[in-house]
Amino acid sequence: MLEVNKLSCNIGENTILSDISFKVLSGEICTIIGGSGAGKTTILRILCGLEGRFSGDILINNRKIHRNTHYFGLVPQGCSLFNHFTAIDNVAYALRKVKKYSKERAYTIATESLEKFGLSDKLSSYPSSLSGGQKQRVAIARTIVMKPKILLFDEPTSALDPEITRDVVDTIRILSATGMPIIVVTHDLSMARQIATRVIFLDNGNVIEDREAKEFFTKPHSERAKCFLGENI
């Protein structure tokens, strides 16, 4: 379980997040939604250790954590695959360099992981020859093999067509079924509606609503959320 207590982030004179608290339980898919500049991505960046200018506590299974990196797995917006590596090299790289696995062991794990995501025929393909959905799955495999405790997705369906979006949604659901808490930052309301079990609605660095997804999408409480959802209610 992930617990975030009174998380604040000020960069220069700008307040990006102010006193945010929320919990994500095992098996939950928590989507963080909100307009541009609401602070969605900043939460992910703080959680995975990319943004150090914050105050507040991050707890995993009731234990406060300090160095965040190996607890969280990040699937970034646009995948950010290593373009000069093949799919299998992308997945095996951190296993070899960070976990110090032997070449053989790393490649066996990478192969199994890619096969699980239906990419057995793309092991030696470079990212430039993969489709958006395939890239997304390689990026997920690259993150999953490191066995993070919590998985973070930053705009996983931006720039993907509806068919591939469905593909990504299915993949996230499968991962959630393993019991791993998942946080998805998105502005794609249709995808959020499909996968979310919980929704955190952010506006100007504040949590406006933190509720069950069904409730949020059918009866949002705040005027701001109603306005944001617009015709989608």
Binding site: T69, N83, A94, T143
Partner: peptide, 14 residues
């Protein structure tokens, strides 16, 4: 080079 690659590698623990 896309800065995202640097950040992903950092999160992976490199």
């Amino acid at each position: 080079v896309d800065h995202g690659q640097y950040e992903v590698a950092k999160v992976l623990g490199c």
